[in-house]
Design a protein around this nucleic acid. Structure first.
Lengths: 196, 196
DNA sequence: GACCGGAACGAACGGTCGTGCTATTTTCAT
DNA sequence: ATGAAAATAGCACGACCGTTCGTTCCGGTC
């Protein structure tokens, strides 16, 4: 790997970390330069603009999420086990990411009212994730684990809601019961969709 | 009402509006001064610091939330009707607040990793809200509408999750089905807790 | 050894931020 | 009507923002 590519990777890694703490808007060129031990201008040369940097960081976060959550889940057996694997990896990646919560949650709150390329990319990423979750759930329907009349996208939306609630309880409220509450809700959710 | 109190009220009203768009951190003295037709220093004189301004805006938003959601809900008959009233007013205040979503949602995402008075106040406000929701739900248990072994705070957490999910779908994804999905989830939630 | 292209640096720019200080205007009780 | 008090404006500051520019350093090529 060339020198430039290596530092660019380091920059993005630090960028995701910092953005998870202070958001994509709070992400600052100077602070990121300090964190990577570079000069502001040296770092800036790797991204033509701050917006470009935000998009790159978002792309990196997406890749990390896929590696940590989606891909491992797809390794589990089709149907409910795969849905459970998705849940467990999602929860683990959310719980253990310290400090700073999920970058996507923060970015979603930041950009839901700011049109532009960053927002567009964010919407696209979330759509992709919803598609994937819905498709994973569908294998559960095909396997006969879940009711055939279930709406996979309704499930995806409800699972997303639960995760958002968990983030809220865990990161803002520092509620020690956050994980237990999430697990309870998740089991209830599965019960709802399971074939009786 | 004295002149000063009037403008202070106008400032806070504009402040809540602006903070709902760009967040409590994105809230800027200069922009707020422009919005209210004042000079930066003139407006600044009303708040000793930006942090103080953030706290005042938060206080104002809390008051508006109580007026728009909590108080009307408490006017409904005890039990499930009151829970439903809470839900409807909450949804209405979230749906019709345009533009900019719920200030508390944005602020929660912004400050979950920034210790300080603002975060403390935010946690306190959310705790108060959870207490109120749990207590409203409890009247449903007392009335025999909900299962006596139900955990009111689990219900509060799940309702909060649903609202967060709705915000996500509605404000970021612009999903036209957001409200329908929320209503479906809410009915499922009530079913879960209802006495069979 | 001369040369070259990429990588990083330091300094500086224009702009905006929050925040003080000092006038000036406006309000209001007497 | 008048004088004290409150409200607002004007101005300047230091800090930090994203961005640009010229320069330097370093590894590989002829």
């Amino acid at each position: 790997m060339s020198k430039g590519a290596a530092t660019r990777e380091a920059i993005l890694h630090c960028g995701v970390e910092q953005a998870a703490k202070v958001g994509l808007s709070g992400l600052t060129i100077g602070a990121l330069a300090d964190a990577t031990g570079m000069s502001k201008s040296g770092l800036f040369a790797h991204a033509k603009s701050k917006q470009e940097l935000q998009l790159r960081v978002l792309e990196q976060a997406r890749a990390e999420y896929i590696d940590a959550v989606i891909r491992p889940a797809l390794g589990a057996p089709r149907g409910e086990p795969r849905v459970r694997a998705l849940f467990e990896h999602w929860l683990a990646s959310a719980r253990d990411r310290a400090p700073g919560g999920c970058l996507f949650v923060k970015a979603a709150a930041e950009f839901d009212d700011r049109p532009g390329p960053v927002r567009d990319q964010l919407v696209k990423d979330h759509k992709d994730k919803d598609d994937t979750v819905a498709q994973i759930f569908s294998t559960g329907v095909a396997e006969g684990h879940f009711r055939p009349d279930a709406d996979p996208y309704q499930f995806a939306a409800e699972l997303q809601s639960l995760m958002l609630g968990y983030f809220h309880l865990h990161r803002l409220m520092h509620d020690p019961d956050a994980e237990q509450r999430l697990r309870t809700s998740f089991e209830n959710l599965l019960d709802q969709y399971r074939v009786k």
